[in-house]
């Protein structure tokens, strides 16, 4: 299911933050290299439409029209196009700049007499889109690594901060609720899975020795409770309540990790 909401500026900015930390804005079956190759012309067509739409929006802004809602609609288009997920999956580095440019354009058109600024964001958006499709052409020119078929590792990479893992897990779970509340069930489910595979599994070893029940409890939350709530279309409040319950368990996990860190032997 794709998002069907109108993104307000704050939501858009929230999305930008999300994109900076997570590669899972979308979660449908990620296109493989063969599909990318097959759809290159579709992507080119999609970005040509987006560029034309942007040109029209900018022209009307210059005439003094209120075009904020049309930029919101452009963001929705970006969310819907096939090109979006292809870039997200195969050209992660070029994915955030597209969001950044859309966010900049959205803010600029709310200002009066900001034609230069609006034009600058238009150019950044056009360039980001063009670079994205260029990267996909490159991807399409190479053989598909076998592991690309494995959806578990679909997420692209980013440099990570030194933020404690438990904090990242809690932030991701908050985003799960946000996305679910916004209507993006698939995105929420994917982020749950990503968080479990890439974050929780990395710390469970230490936890097992101190509180194995806590680990199996959280495993169940990640792999059964939350996904089933989403699958059964439970209310967002119910999902949020479950996440709140998980956060208490994660606090307990943090205490265990802190204690273990005090007793951990040094490597050298």
């Amino acid at each position: 299911m794709k998002p069907s909401i109108h993104l307000s500026r704050s939501l858009l900015l929230g999305a930008l933050v999300l994109c900076a930390q997570s590669a899972f804005a979308h979660s449908g079956d990620a296109p493989g290299v063969a599909e990318v190759k097959e759809h290159i012309s579709d992507y080119e067509s999609e970005i040509a439409d987006m560029r034309n739409t942007t040109s029209a929006i900018v022209a009307d802004y210059d005439k003094g029209e209120d075009v904020g809602k049309r930029v919101d609609a452009l963001v929705e288009t970006w969310e819907e196009v096939e090109f979006h997920e292809a870039v997200e999956t195969h050209a992660m580095v070029l994915y955030p700049p597209i969001w950044t440019a859309l966010g900049g354009l959205r803010e600029a058109v709310d200002e009066a007499n900001a034609s230069d600024k609006v034009a600058a964001w238009q150019m950044r958006l056009n360039n980001a889109l063009q670079e994205g499709v260029g990267a996909l052409k490159l991807v399409a020119s190479q053989p598909a690594p076998a592991s690309a078929a494995h959806g578990h590792d679909k997420a692209a990479t980013s440099h990570q901060s030194d933020e404690p893992t438990i904090e990242i897990i809690k932030e991701n779970l908050a985003k799960v609720v946000e996305r679910y509340r916004a209507g993006d069930s698939e995105g929420a489910s994917a982020l749950i899975h990503q968080t479990y595979m890439q974050r929780f599994e990395g710390i469970e070893g230490t936890l097992i020795e101190s509180d194995a029940d806590l680990v199996t409890d959280l495993e169940k939350d990640f792999n059964a409770t939350l996904p089933l709530l989403i699958e059964r279309s439970a209310s967002a409040d119910k999902l949020a309540a479950e996440v709140k319950s998980m956060n208490a368990k994660l606090d307990r996990a943090q205490t265990i990790l802190d204690e273990a860190a005090k007793n951990k032997p040094s490597v050298f």
């Binding site: 195969h90 050209a91 991807v139 690594p145 592991s147 494995h150 590792d153 990479t157 440099h159 595979m197």
Partner: peptide, 19 residues
């Protein structure tokens, strides 16, 4: 250090090399 899922890093390495 660049961290990420192993399969995604493998894809990235290949893509970077091709580029």
């Amino acid at each position: 250090i660049r961290r990420g899922p192993s399969a995604a890093l493998a894809n990235t390495l290949i893509a970077e090399s091709r580029a």
